[in-house]
């Protein structure tokens, strides 16, 4: 095939990462430190997710990569190519067919199965970071379950915007114990975090791995009088007509015309193939 070890990383490194993954699965939501390696891509491009994927992939796997829900953006294409070259695994754009899915900033619309693994790229794993910059202190807060500060952040949201304006990376409590940053997925995806598949989170620069095992309780933090809401743009998809998927807003021209389309490109494509049509498709047909 080529001169790389399977999936780029050497076996010792993969073993080290797998140990971190197992520990993360055993203690849901806990950030496990690991010896993050230099990867042939810059930090912020998914080095953590790539290392977790590399340690997770087997030659039989089918790999899918999405970036903000799309299979065809630069980041997704690069990482897919990277594993095609270094692991020789099959790749796909269909959520249904993938066994390992690496993602940046989205959870696929399709319900994931128990034989699938989803790997999230994480820029900043520490949900308390912006309120308490000292790592020594945040670690202590996690270990003592002192999470009042998380609600201070939500309080600030409401006092400044009249509602909890945190729209992505919305903090959750996992298995009634650890408060976790679910990576910058939209809060629309938060309810999906309780799923059948294994969810792994990798932060390369920050050298942390954490996980949510299947069927684990994941609660989005909120106030009694300002309950959590999984919001999305109040439109159907202009291409496939879906009412239940997370939408991207696309500005069409200088006149301010816009369209809303599914951010999950595979979901949108499969719906259109099944004959669903949205507003623009109807106009084009007319």
């Amino acid at each position: 095939m080529n001169e790389y070890n399977f999936a780029y990383l050497d076996e010792q490194t993969k073993r080290m990462i797998r140990r971190a993954i197992l520990k993360a699965l055993a203690v849901p939501g806990y950030q496990v430190p690991f010896a993050s390696r230099e990867m042939p891509m810059p930090y912020g491009w998914g080095t953590g997710g790539v290392q977790v994927s590399a340690a997770t992939l087997t030659p039989e796997d089918t790999f899918k990569v999405i970036d903000q829900g799309a299979d065809d953006t630069t980041n997704a294409v690069s990482i897919r190519k990277f594993f095609e070259n270094t692991a020789g695994v099959k790749t796909t754009e269909e959520t249904e067919k993938a066994t390992v899915i690496q993602t940046r900033h989205r959870t696929p619309e399709a319900k994931l199965r128990k034989d699938q693994i989803i790997v999230y790229q994480v820029p900043i794993p520490e949900p308390l970071r912006f309120l308490e910059p000292r790592e020594t202190e945040t670690r202590k807060m996690h270990s003592l379950e002192e999470y009042g500060l998380m609600h201070v952040k939500l309080y600030e949201d409401i006092s400044q915007h009249g509602a909890i304006s945190t729209a992505y990376a919305y903090p959750v409590k996992v298995s009634d114990r650890y408060v976790m940053d679910p990576s910058p997925i939209p809060k629309f995806d938060n309810p999906k975090l309780e799923m059948d598949a294994i969810q792994l989170f990798g932060a390369g620069r920050e050298q942390r791995i954490y996980a949510v095992p299947p069927h684990t309780k994941v609660v989005s933090l909120d106030f009694e009088d300002y309950p959590f809401e999984a919001t999305k743009a109040d439109h159907p998809c202009d291409l496939c007509g879906a009412e239940d998927s997370y939408l991207d807003e696309v500005i069409m021209d200088d006149a301010g015309n816009r369209m809303f389309v599914c951010s999950d490109t595979d979901y949108c494509r499969s719906r259109r193939e099944a004959g669903h049509v949205g507003r623009l498709a109807e106009e084009n047909a007319a």
Partner: peptide, 18 residues
Amino acid sequence: SAGGNIGERLMAVGDRHY
């Protein structure tokens, strides 16, 4: 904010009503 500063101890001991 001032309100958040005062509220922190309340939230730390479990108050959840904004």
